[in-house]
Write a protein that binds this DNA or RNA. Structure first.
Lengths: 164, 164
DNA sequence: TATTGTTATACTCTATAACTATA
DNA sequence: TATAGTTATAGAGTATAACAATA
């Protein structure tokens, strides 16, 4: 070893694979959140729009709350914010007048498309250093993991409340 | 299509690779947090112990705060909790009596080893469905990504405060 | 009585700013 | 004057519990 000890020791920290995935995943989530700020949305908003933009297109608040494992009271605030921007509407439910049917608006669909463009920007930033086969392999592995762990498509664990 | 429409439509949600990584990563972080509760620690505590257990073994609070990109005031609370359990000590610094030198205790090293065992339990839970080559390939890819994105080893983005 | 959506409140976590003791 | 660590306070985000309307 010929390095003079004036130079600070390079930190030697060993971490496992789960840490690496969590670290990169959290970085991706943070960056996505930063990028979304330009269109005044949060990842949670986009997650809701994503579900409303996919089939089935209509569902009640309770159904959505169950799907996301989010508390109904928490969902109210999220929906208020999205509805205030005119991105979704709460329609009265003819069959059960207690409940409301959620539906994404035209403006909501447009905004969701912008969010998807931002997602593609993010993917470029994150994965451009991977080869095409590397990227495809990673994608397949992550899908397999998400599936085996029982993670529902489009449902981020960040929604989940801490008592279940 | 011969599925009767009485059966609920299977949701069709498409997500990108960054979402998948973030989703699995968040799930891993949540599970790790749950497992750590059995030894009364949080992932943040373990992250600090991991750095103190690795070389260099001694550093000041400011140095640690910079390393983790955590606010000094926030670090104080974290260190208080760890020190109260006797896992680290704040030694007076002879060279500068304003600062304190952090050092992990014997008990802290033992506790950190238990945390590492929990990490291995977690890795088994998460990745047992992958083949050995698949797992090695994933590990290499994630290391490459973390490196290219400039993520410091052992420094989880969850530490980072929101104003930088 | 039970459920849907809502509101009000409490709690936890984090950021900001003021403070002390040293330099 | 500036810096290291600390404490006090404020703010954001989330969970709990009570509520009105409807079933």
């Amino acid at each position: 070893m010929n390095t003079p000890n004036v130079i600070p020791v390079e930190p030697e920290v060993k971490v496992g694979l789960s840490f690496l995935v969590s670290q990169v995943g959290a970085y991706a989530a943070n960056t996505f959140s930063d990028l979304l700020r330009t269109i005044d949305l949060t990842p949670q908003h986009v997650g809701i729009l994503r579900i409303l933009a996919s089939k089935p297109h209509e569902l009640t608040q309770t159904a959505l709350a169950n799907r996301l494992s989010v508390l109904p009271s928490r969902l109210v605030a999220l929906l208020d914010e999205i509805e205030a921007r005119g991105l979704l509407e709460r329609k009265p439910n003819e069959e059960d007048r207690r409940s409301k049917v959620l539906r994404i608006t035209k403006k909501g669909e447009k905004t969701f498309l912008r969010a998807e463009m931002i997602t593609r920007t993010l993917e470029t930033q994150l994965f451009s250093t991977l080869s095409e086969t590397e990227r495809a392999k990673l994608s397949a592995t992550m899908k397999k993991l998400a599936d085996n762990l029982g993670l529902a498509p489009g449902v981020h664990p960040a929604y989940r409340n801490h008592n279940q």
